[in-house]
């Protein structure tokens, strides 16, 4: 029904979509195993956050090994869900290569929310978290404004795309600078709450938690990768805010 190479192709594609959507390492390995099992072929696979290694062991012919390099993660829960149900369906009813690849292409191109609604949602996130951290309404609306700027910047930036962590440094600078501007109009504001609320969506909460989740599953290498990433993001953000505030607070 499928040659070994085609099967590897399908498994790699499914694994790549999962990894690039921010799925845990054990889930990717599980899915690849499940796809191979549906077609009754033995396999070994080893997944890092930056690469997938698969060796297929078809009965009666030579083993085949492949590596795929993975670049660029953008967290996407919907895709994880779709690939998950794809691999489960495969187990019940194996399908042909063309069909499988078409389904995976569709998953890869599944629609996202448009820019305007994501922008508004980013703003609302800041608003809600500022209130949750006991900020008042005025502070919440300032945070709303800041995170609109930050999200627009982030989207524009990902089009240009150079140094990955520099983006976070600049975001920190922007957030702190706007806060200082607001502070000069109204000195009673609590700028720390505003800054924290507005950068909430940039903070590496998911990387931090999945890093430890990976560690508890025994995937130590991937866990270290994620924790380091989380550390660099917080350092870049904090440095951006800190530098701006320490200069700015003396001027205001």
């Amino acid at each position: 029904m499928m040659t070994t190479n085609q099967l590897i192709d399908v498994a790699l594609k499914a694994g790549e979509i999962l990894l690039r959507s921010g799925a845990e390492v054990y889930r990717v390995e599980d899915t690849i195993f499940r796809i191979f099992k549906s077609y009754d072929v033995d396999c070994e696979c080893f997944v890092l956050l930056t690469a997938i290694f698969i060796t297929a062991k078809p009965k009666g012919s030579d083993n085949v090994s492949v590596i795929r390099r993975i670049k660029g993660v953008s967290y996407n829960l919907h895709r994880i869900e779709l690939v998950n149900s794809f691999s489960r369906n495969l187990q019940e009813r194996p399908i042909s290569y063309q069909e499988a690849m078409e389904i995976l292409e569709d998953i890869e191109n599944a629609t996202q929310y448009n820019f305007i609604s994501r922008l508004v949602v980013a703003g609302l996130t800041a608003l809600v978290f500022t209130l949750l951290f006991n900020g008042n309404i005025l502070e919440a609306f300032i945070a709303f404004g800041i995170s609109l700027i930050l999200y627009a910047f982030k989207e524009k930036y990902s089009v240009i795309g150079f140094l990955p962590f520099f983006e976070y440094f600049v975001s920190g600078v922007i957030a702190a600078a706007v806060c200082l501007l607001a502070l000069s109009f109204n000195p009673s504001l609590n700028i720390y709450i505003i800054i924290i609320g507005s950068i909430m969506m940039l903070l590496p909460g998911m990387a931090l938690t999945s890093g430890i989740k990976d560690a508890l599953h025994g995937d130590t290498v991937s866990s270290l990768y994620r924790l380091t990433e989380a550390m660099f993001i917080s350092v870049a953000l904090g440095a951006g805010v800190g530098v701006t505030l320490s200069i700015g607070l003396r001027l205001v």
């Binding site: 949750l132 903070l203 931090l208 989380a230 550390m231 917080s234 350092v235 440095a239 805010v241 530098v243």
Partner: peptide, 16 residues
């Protein structure tokens, strides 16, 4: 809401 992203940020802020 539980994730300590704020803590991570505060830590760096204090170092700075």
């Amino acid at each position: 809401p539980l994730v300590p992203g704020v803590g991570a940020y505060n830590t760096v802020q204090m170092i700075v």
